[in-house]
């Protein structure tokens, strides 16, 4: 199968990934080649085969719903791009 420029722009938007206009032909080519490889899966007979999400078919462990983490806000915010009053700052969202 082959993707086109519109497909690449759409998934780049879904992934919140700015890509340069000049790079789009390269992505169209590479992603099309990769999905051509992936197309081989369509020939596999997977009737009645249950999907395998985890290599050991394990289930998520449950734990008691109690607080186990200590508050380390200052430590974590020390490496943040922009903070104020203990909050992470982003461009204004609500007018």
């Amino acid at each position: 199968m082959s993707l086109d420029k519109t497909d690449v722009e759409k998934i780049a938007h879904l992934a919140r990934l700015a890509i340069n206009e000049n790079d789009i032909p390269g992505y169209v080519r590479d992603l099309s080649n990769i999905f051509n490889l992936v197309e081989n899966l369509s020939y596999a007979d997977t009737n009645n085969i249950s999907p395998m999400a985890h290599p050991l078919d394990a289930h998520q462990r449950l734990r008691p719903d109690v607080v186990t983490e200590t508050n380390q806000r200052e430590l974590f915010q020390a490496i943040a791009p922009e903070t104020a009053d203990g909050l992470y700052l982003v461009p204004q969202v609500i007018e």
Partner: peptide
Amino acid sequence: RGEGFGDEVKRRILIGAYA
């Protein structure tokens, strides 16, 4: 994200987002 990630990482994010 566009500036922070290199070509191969971007390719794989795009494949995954599409799939």
